[in-house]
Amino acid sequence: MMIAAPASVAEIQDAHSQASGAATPLLRVQDLTIAFPAAVGREAEVVSSISYEIGAGEALGVVGESGCGKTMTSLALMGLLPPAAQVDGAIWFDGRDLTKLSARAWRSHRGRDAAMVFQEPMTAMNPVMRVGDQIAEVLVRHEGMSKRDGFSRAVQLLASVHIPSPERRAQDYPHQLSGGMRQRAMIAMALACRPKLLVADEPTTALDVTVQAQILDLMLELQEQHGTAIQFISHNLAVVSEIAHRIMVMYSGRIVEYASVGDLFANPLHPYTQGLIKTLPEMGQPGSDLYTIPGTIGGKRPPGCRFSNRCPLADAGCRQAEPALREVAPRHYVACHKVN
């Protein structure tokens, strides 16, 4: 299937949803660009004109290495980008363009419509405030609850994320909880107001494997209970593959491939995605040399395709024009000149 003129994903998906009669998605990011005032040795654009969408109740995995723009994309959804960031494009969420929100409207969006869970459970909570109070604070802010009602609701929420003896834990300070329990408490806090979208930025990276498995279980369970949509960011393909319906692979501020989990692993099309999968140690024969993607991350972007300086397939054409993200199979998008 060929598309003559490269269209944006949003347009393509628009056509799709019209064709299938589906409702508009919960989140639709359109040509989102995030730039910072140029600094020496750093690219000004950390995210370049990306478009994607998340349906209600859908889990999207975002995968990429450092500097690919995955964290900036998440912060943009929450209005938490550093003040110096310049944002272009549109973020349609539930019928509103978030990029047009006032500071006040952002504050009522954050914590109520969309909530976030961060990587470091050790530092993400206020060390001098009781866990229950920190959870209650969201309810006081958005649901107009009294502090007291908020606290008793916080105890229920701690129980719903399977924290043993939640009454006591609500009275505890963060340092009295283990890393896994803190992350559970963060999830309880994020889900307190039943947000439509949960943005999770490497939520299991700092945890041990057995605890990571517990947290992934918990997120799946809560998602099925409440139908929350999730944007799950990770550098770890395997973690993402266990929780996401669809995966978006980012490289150097661009989406390079975007497909369902099944399609992506059965038929990875972009050389970068292929490389990422092939470099996994569990993919190689023990003791043999693993496949490596040559070169390093960071540094100056090459002209044309941003992956062209590390790509085994790159030719002169790749170094001239940046490839657009196109749909090469139903709902399977890739940005590569070499893919037909």
């Binding site: 896994g180 057995t210 992934l216 279980d217 369970e221 395997a238 593959s241 266990e242 692993f265």
Partner: peptide, 25 residues
């Protein structure tokens, strides 16, 4: 055995909850 089960793997699809080890170290 529990460690092996906890490690996420690609190609298994969405995980089946309830197999992870309970509690913490």
């Amino acid at each position: 055995q529990a460690l092996m089960r906890s490690v996420p793997r690609i190609g298994r699809g969405r995980r089946q909850p309830g197999q992870s080890l309970k509690g913490e170290i």
